[in-house]
Write a protein that binds this DNA or RNA. Structure first.
Length: 645
RNA sequence: GCCGUGUUAGCUCAGUGGCAGAGCAACUCACUCGUAAUGAGUAGGUCAGGGGUUCAAAUCCCCUACACGGCUCCA
């Protein structure tokens, strides 16, 4: 019998007979491992675990722990869903059904039928029924001719369209039960591997993503190799829902929207506004220390400004339309960004190399006409305030400035408890350099500077080629929040375009005119987005220093309201944000409501406290922490507030 | 913008062709209370807005506004 050498990830090489499958190899290692194998990486190609291996190879067994393993199960689940749908809705046509980051979907032309959210449960049930039958996924290599005939027979224009692009000899079918699909694979051995199934949502999706094409029905789902993993997932969904900033923002009275004001335009309520102010204050302090200079610019500007900046040409028709005036031909635009205004500030004086770096900072509110369907809570809005700053510097100073901005971003992460992040460096597409504006040497140097700055700051870095904007390379951070979701935060962007368009100059040591480099940066991105992220990250339990109400004074009965007022007064004098709940309600109720409002400290006040000038301190989510004098409490909370950084 | 689903009291939601509902919140009264909801009562509605079908519409149909999910993932 012929023998093949299989090298495993631990470096060992084992011999097996030709035609052994990954599954059999796993079985030879351990039975429990074999049960978990979903597919296998054979010489870096993903294979079915049941596909015979006939040559020496490197083998990695893929389980649920591997992304590729997950993808395999989800891909098989997509086929299973298609089979179930074909049973329930004979005659529907299928486009593609890939695994995605969190599950799978299938795009379906449902013809005359309509599949809605209400139908998902029935499809799920049918899927579970098919799971129990343990149908194997059978791989079959077919000729292009055979494949075309099969789908012609089935009158399936979609698969025929896919086949057009495929080469003969490269085509495989997978069949499980009664369903056969054109598919590269791989798949799990049989449907029994799919244990927990949840179909999540129905959506429309254009065929091939082109809005001129027909809209197909896309059904999203997710599946798991164990039922309790599904339960855990559903639990996490609940948790994410609970932490939804739109819900928390409403419950805690941070912000609201009004149909009369318009979609995507948040109204900040008093409590939310305090949070905004605290965030601004926090950054202002850091920026002052870092020699930023504050500026303020208007919310509108003449059309001319955006003609110069190029935004008029690029976004003119897809933006808020011009504001007209009694003056014929006069047009103003709402500002979609602060940079052009800041360029004008730069231009207002002759600049010397000695003035650089010039760092202009503004909490600038901008307006962008985001598409109707793009809007989402505070994360995608039509009016928002950027914690913007523009640094005008020489190309040589780019690296140093990046390092300083990285420090600020890392400070933000530290203070708000974002521990898991990766810096992403976006560079040019090296194959296609002509589409970028700016000088080759400048780009070269800036790209190098960013990489070095990130390295020297010890950042975990990922370099992405082709992700740079046409006007410059950038660095931004991908952070994970408390429940593991990824957010992009803290962009630092080099810009060669605007200095050019605004003809910005400085006089160098050589007495010649030079063009400065512009760096855009926004550690929070926008206050709206950052607060949304913060609410979801903390579940609404904000740090004390940023909480809109830090203390609630709760009198046990109306008899103690006078003393409560005195306590409120003492705390207020010490800049502690405090309110007294002087309603004629039971203490239990007052506590409950303060807890629900996530107020960090509650001071319970009754006979004992009044007699001895004490307060009984209850901490949010912790409970009663004992009593102390008012002065002690003031010191206690001041320590917490002042030591956040 | 496109597809789908929604919009009922301040909030959360029930009501699917035949009298507009509940809990919480609000207001009034009683209770003056010790660490997550005191009790009783009162008030609160253009059922998102507009049009249509019907003897009769929150309910069915059409239009509009707003909200939610998706529209990048290529067998």
């Amino acid at each position: 019998m012929e023998i093949i050498n299989v090298s495993l990830p631990d470096g060992s090489v084992k011999q097996y007979p030709v035609g052994h499958t990954a599954l059999q190899i796993a079985e030879s290692i351990s039975h429990s491992l074999a049960k978990r194998v979903l597919s296998a990486l054979v010489d870096n190609e993903i294979w079915d675990a049941t596909r015979p291996i006939s040559k020496d190879c490197k083998l990695k067994l893929l389980t649920w722990e591997d992304d590729e393993g997950k993808a395999t199960l989800w891909h098989s689940s997509a086929h299973l869903m298609a089979e179930a749908i074909e049973h329930l809705y004979p005659g529907v046509r299928f486009w593609v059904g890939p695994p995605v980051e969190n599950g799978f979907y299938y795009d379906i032309d449902t013809g005359e039928e309509k599949i809605t959210l209400n139908d998902l449960e029935v499809i799920e049930k049918k899927m579970m029924e098919l799971v129990k039958q343990n149908h194997p996924y059978i791989r079959k290599e077919v000729s292009k001719k055979e494949a075309i005939e099969y789908f012609k027979d089935k009158k399936d224009p979609y698969k025929l369209d896919l086949l057009e692009k495929l080469n003969d000899g490269d085509i495989t079918f997978y069949t499980q039960g009664s369903f056969t699909d054109l598919c590269r694979g791989p798949h799990v051995p049989d449907t029994g591997y799919i244990k927990g199934i949840k179909l999540l949502t129905v959506a429309g999706a254009y065929w091939k993503g082109d809005e001129k094409n027909k809209m197909l029905t896309r059904i999203y789902g997710i599946s798991f190799p164990k039922e309790n993993e599904l339960k855990e997932f559903l639990h996490q969904l609940e948790e994410a829902k609970r932490r939804d900033h739109r819900k928390i923002g409403k419950d805690l009275a941070f912000f609201t929207f009004s149909e009369n004001v318009g979609m995507g335009l948040a109204l900040w309520l008093p409590r939310g506004t305090v949070v905004r102010y605290e965030l601004e204050q926090f950054l202002r302090k850091i920026q002052n220390k870092n020699a930023y200079q504050p500026v303020v610019t208007p919310h509108i500007a003449q059309k001319q400004l955006y003609v110069i900046s190029g935004h008029y040409e690029k976004y003119g028709k897809d933006s808020f339309q011009p504001i007209r005036t009694p003056q014929e031909d006069e047009e103003f635009f709402l500002k979609p960004m602060n940079c052009p205004h800041h360029c004008e500030i730069y231009r207002s004086l002759p600049r010397s190399y000695k003035d650089l770096p010039l760092r202009l900072a503004e909490f600038g509110t901008v307006y962008r006409y985001e598409q109707h369907g793009e809007l989402h809570g505070l994360t995608r809005v039509r009016g928002f305030t950027q914690d913007d700053a523009h640094i005008f510097c020489t190309n040589e100073q780019v690296k140093g400035e990046f390092k300083k901005v990285i420090d600020i971003v890392l400070k933000v992460f530290e203070v708000f408890g974002f521990k898991d992040y990766v810096a992403q460096v976006s560079l040019r597409d090296m194959e296609n350099k002509q589409k970028y504006i700016g000088k080759e040497e400048a780009w070269e140097k800036a790209e190098q500077s960013i990489i070095e700055a990130a390295q020297e700051k010890g950042l975990k870095t990922k370099i992405e080629y082709g992700e740079a904007a046409f006007y410059g390379p950038k660095l931004d951070f991908m952070v994970k929040d408390a429940i593991g979701r990824k957010w992009q935060l803290g962009t630092i962007q080099v810009d060669y375009n605007l200095p050019e368009r605004f003809e910005l100059e400085y006089t160098g040591a050589d007495n010649q005119k030079h063009r400065p480099v512009m760096i855009h940066r926004a550690p929070f991105g926008s206050l709206e987005r950052f607060i949304a992220l913060l609410l979801e990250h903390t579940g609404g339990n904000l740090p004390v220093w940023i909480s809109p109400q830090q203390v609630a004074v709760l009198a046990i009965s109306e008899k103690f309201n006078l003393y409560a007022e005195k306590v409120v007064h003492l705390l207020s004098e010490n800049n502690i944000r405090v309110l007294s709940d002087d309603r004629n309600e039971k203490i239990g109720k007052k506590i409950r409501e303060s807890e629900l409002m996530k107020i960090p400290f509650m001071l319970v006040i009754g006979e004992k406290e009044k007699e001895n000038n004490l307060v009984s301190v209850r901490q949010h989510k912790v409970g009663d922490v004992g009593s102390m004098s008012v002065e002690e409490f003031i010191q206690h909370i001041k320590n917490i507030v002042e030591n956040y950084q």
